[in-house]
Design a protein around this nucleic acid. Sequence first.
DNA 1: TCCCTGCGGGAAAGGGCTTTCTCTGCGGTA
DNA 2: TACCGCAGAGAAAGCCCTTTCCCGCAGGGA
Lengths: 357, 357
Amino acid sequence: MATLSDVARRAGVSPATASRVINGSSKPVTDELRERVLAAVAELQYVPNAHAQLLARSHRSAVGVIVHDVSDPYFAEITRGLQRVATDQGRLLMICNSYRDPDRELEYVELLRGHQVAALILAGSGYHDDAFTRQLNEKLTAYEATGGRVVVIGRHEHSGDAVMPDNRSGGYLAGRELCELGHRAIGVVAGPRILTTTTDRLAGLRQALAEHGHDLPEQRIRYAEFDRDGGAEATAALLDADPELTAIVALNDSMAIGALATLRGRSMPVPQRVSVVGFDDMPIARDVTPALTTVRLPLVDMGVRAMSLVLGAEAPAPRVDVLPAELIRRDTAGPVPHQQRETAASVPHARRGDATA
Amino acid sequence: MATLSDVARRAGVSPATASRVINGSSKPVTDELRERVLAAVAELQYVPNAHAQLLARSHRSAVGVIVHDVSDPYFAEITRGLQRVATDQGRLLMICNSYRDPDRELEYVELLRGHQVAALILAGSGYHDDAFTRQLNEKLTAYEATGGRVVVIGRHEHSGDAVMPDNRSGGYLAGRELCELGHRAIGVVAGPRILTTTTDRLAGLRQALAEHGHDLPEQRIRYAEFDRDGGAEATAALLDADPELTAIVALNDSMAIGALATLRGRSMPVPQRVSVVGFDDMPIARDVTPALTTVRLPLVDMGVRAMSLVLGAEAPAPRVDVLPAELIRRDTAGPVPHQQRETAASVPHARRGDATA
DNA sequence: TCCCTGCGGGAAAGGGCTTTCTCTGCGGTA
DNA sequence: TACCGCAGAGAAAGCCCTTTCCCGCAGGGA
């Protein structure tokens, strides 16, 4: 690879001058030398060594982002928001997928710190795991001590600036909607138990049911992976255990799509026989049939806010931006079926045979 | 940020020794010193400066990847394949989204070159744009001249190693299927005209139609963005121009989903009134209703092969891996409706009023 | 006893760039 | 004419590591 001194030699100038021309430094350089340098750059196809530059320059500019998985629409949307602000400010983003592995998350914090990022954004659910939380906090605090900025999205563990979707209210909204439609026998297709997102959404849901005089027994909750197949399996398990269920809340839209698939496979019409409510309102939600009733989170906006916080001025006290959830009524949630209205929740195992057909 | 010499000073050793301990060098260090260094590292929360390391080490290890958009399922799948191999070999991936902007693509080649990546993978369609192609090739060639490896996925322009999905055969498969189901009035919802992927798929489709004695006039093709909304708009335009259409080929699944949405909005049942065939077989294809008939491309495998090629031994002659397309029959393609069998394609504008209702 | 070997450790030379500091030569002022 | 100031260029000092090279010392063989 050609180096700066190759360019300088070819142009017959010093490396200092070449550097000034290439970086558009404020120090003036005569047109003649400038042209010679530019010509040499073109001839040698010179590209500055980014590592050398970053090492030599004092100021850090890139921003590190840790998400569970960018190709998951939830994070894709958040990332879109992050990108928008970052691009406006000429910042490079380094995006890492932790695939919901806490250890990998810890590693990535180190990696990004090593890459001298100016700021760090952690998006996605936190974990119910004190040892992990403590370790992560230690690392983040150490990073902040050296001037790094940190913002978390949708996580409780870090005590600094945060952008929080209102998961609890979202769960509440889903629960209230179903209760008002007359449902009592409601099953929950939940994400991994260890994620705070799961438990927050569940808590809101439980509250809504309680306000309507219903409870949510553990056997009506199935924990599975936060994806389509997890949703499909959990729905099958739920239905096997309790064929009288009239509604299912899936704790994210991917799981809801899996639920829809299972229901279709068992010829249980939605919403005539079973209602389904999703969570997140990812783009595909409106395109499944029937279109998915779900809880919308302002994902892009969450990204925008997080990046603005992290690049903005430092605040004396931690700022927490809570963004509201909103119920989007489409076609998967309907009134409780007539024959179920009285008996629901009272004969949980009666017709198992039918339902698994 | 703590530096290596901070660690060394604290441990009372030389930076050389500290470095050896931290990197697990083959040179032996006594246990006592080792422990002192490790303790200092922990106390200072030391993380090596990645840029300094990369500068000091001679060998380059990271691999650069340029895709149109990782959150697009097409690229998400390819990336999954790339990751799998890269992780096995302990390589870091730097993934950049060009968002189908040729200029950005060029910039990213430079950026990645500047970051000293050991290899470069460009995935996604090429462009029908000679000036761009020439520029890109120049840059890639310059990069290869300095020892960099390059593999392209699904692009014609570069003359080195390549992994190619058989887009043309895929188009042919879609066309043949519809012809065999009796369709003659077939509309095409195409991606941007400037992409070679679009024209390749179109060419295969055209060939299939020709073999069945049909042609594909330009007004039966609508070019739009390669996404859901593009597909929806193009389908609407197609139907407005020619309400007698009995089948639609969408050149990717996102567009097919848009087509399905438009058709649903116009109450044209699929496949009874109009058949739809997609392309790519992205995961969601099986979850829409009716499940999408589409052409599958082995996306993950394409990623695996590309990464294997780029990290494997250099070949004397360019290698081109062509991966076959496969028709996946689901529920959106059916026989041509009865009343259309004779008249189709002969009265293009007759019933516009009805169809747009 | 002397020399050689090998081990554990440090000194120092880069790696490619930015940036401060220094130097030269010119035009302008007293 | 002598001096000052400044514009434009180069020299050189880092930035933080890795790694080669070298050194001192202890142990073993002759």
